[in-house]
Design a protein around this nucleic acid. Sequence first.
DNA 1: TTGCTCCTCACGTCACGTGAGGTGGC
DNA 2: TTGCTCCTCACGTCACGTGAGGTGGC
Lengths: 149, 149
Amino acid sequence: MTAVSPERTFRIGELARLAGTTARTVRYYEEIGLLAEAGEREAGAHRTYSEADLERLRQVLRLKELLGLSLEELKRVVEAEEARAALRREWHETEDPATRRRIVDEALGHVGGQLELVRRRRAELADLEEELVARRARLRDARRDLEGA
Amino acid sequence: MTAVSPERTFRIGELARLAGTTARTVRYYEEIGLLAEAGEREAGAHRTYSEADLERLRQVLRLKELLGLSLEELKRVVEAEEARAALRREWHETEDPATRRRIVDEALGHVGGQLELVRRRRAELADLEEELVARRARLRDARRDLEGA
DNA sequence: TTGCTCCTCACGTCACGTGAGGTGGC
DNA sequence: TTGCTCCTCACGTCACGTGAGGTGGC
């Protein structure tokens, strides 16, 4: 039996390639505090990343490209995400239903806000698509009329 | 009877506001040749824009925001659009069906390319929306379990 | 040992934002 | 005439790109 390699690590170039970006971008995100610094590192040593780091980077890039968020806005999203992760850990330490409800409600608000953004974008894209389809239909009609010639 | 004001014009500030951007952006687009210079203008005089200019600016901003195109890419789109407008004028001067077919086919290729971009984006947004909806469902379940407490 | 990838400056670029100082039109 | 909006530099900023010169690991 082979191990499932639960501790796959990446260097910055591979991480960037797998996430569809560049090493420079990853370093920049670290520089401005959007991504955490890659573990313990003596000055000048190579950065190493985990699969969790890869997923986090992918998610950040996805929100940036699809929703057009600035890095400042993404920083707030990531911070909120981390705060919620901390709350999830706290979750198991409390029995108080009021506290638990507060945690869930906060998460619901956060997810709801993102959903609204995504849906607005999708609606705008749907409008654009509709216009393009109409244009294409008119062009196809013209094209069909020319077939007979 | 009042006239339908077929020649409504705008100054740069109003144009920008109606298009959802800034005067600086409009000047920059003119500077890099993305938007045509605003008519005849002695140096230092105010720019004036037509409703057609407003529509063009809106369309450019829409493609930029929804598809994430760079200004260089948008320039190519606008140029292709202008070439097609020129061809439409040429259209009425030719009787040759082969020429007309070439004009229509070029337009079809252009619209088809844009449609593909729009659809890919929409699909990506649909995936993101699905994930968010699933997260919200799990949170709502947790929330419901807490109601009983 | 030889490549390849990584490292840190640091300057360049794209797409504007933001004054500074001055002029034009209702 | 007084505001308001416009004008042209020109420097600042955000999000990286792109070398320059040097070091690390399979």
